Amino acid sequence: MVNVSIARRYARALLDVTAESQRTDAVATQLASLVQAFEKSAELSDVLLNPAYSRSQRAQVVESLIQLAGNLEPVLANTLRLLVERNRLIYLPDISRVFRDMADTRAGRVRGHVTSAAPLSPATLEQLRKNLQQATQRDVILEQKVDPALIGGAAAQVGSVLYDGSLRTQLEQMRRQLKQQ
């Protein structure tokens, strides 16, 4: 992350404008898609971030990108143009992340990660989400990861709280207890 305060400033302004039109979630989705496009395409990243290209060349690429997207929210298209104009396009991934976090906070959502030794069934994942929602008193959005090193069980992190029910952690606790005796 280059400079959080710059990303926060743009994200807050974008959030304020999208909240008025109640298009926050749509803009967050489109913004994340744009960041993915930049990350997946080395050529696109190079043109947009390399100082060897002029501002007008970057503006042309962004306009083409806006046209290709087709139904891009007007406020997001204007934000992209503003970022090009002010040479701030490099902050787009940070703006996207901060925007998503601010939108989640405003909507009363919290993001979490659940890591398990094997993929969880949709029903199990939904039950876990409901339990975490009850524990946090907030709407929980879970992302699933698989880590065979856990041996069994699962670990869920919501915000800064870690709920660890993995077999690896339980074995480690037993090992420590046996060592102490």
Rank of each mutant, 00 (worst) to 15 (best):
A135Y: 06
E63G: 05
R129M: 12
G108L: 06
T79W: 00
V84Y: 03
L178K: 13
L120N: 10
R176L: 07
L48E: 02
L89V: 05
E126C: 03
D139Y: 11
A77C: 06
V17F: 07
A69P: 07
R168S: 13
D46H: 14
S64D: 14
V161L: 13
Q173K: 14
Q144G: 10
A156W: 04
N78M: 04
S166V: 11
S33K: 11
S64E: 15
L15P: 06
E20Q: 13
D104E: 13
D25Y: 02
V62L: 13
T115M: 08
Q134N: 11
A107H: 12
L76V: 05
D147N: 14
L120P: 05
S41V: 15
Q173N: 09
P148T: 06
F99C: 03
F99Y: 15
V2C: 02
Q36H: 09
I66G: 07
D104Q: 12
E172F: 02
D139R: 13
T105A: 11
T105I: 06
L31A: 05
D164T: 12
R9D: 00
V47W: 07
Q157V: 08
I66R: 12
F99I: 02
E85H: 05
V140F: 07
I90H: 04
S121N: 12
G70W: 08
D25T: 03
R109H: 10
N3L: 14
R81G: 03
P119T: 15
A7S: 15
L44A: 12
R9Y: 01
A117T: 12
L72T: 10
A77P: 07
V47I: 15
V84M: 08
L82E: 00
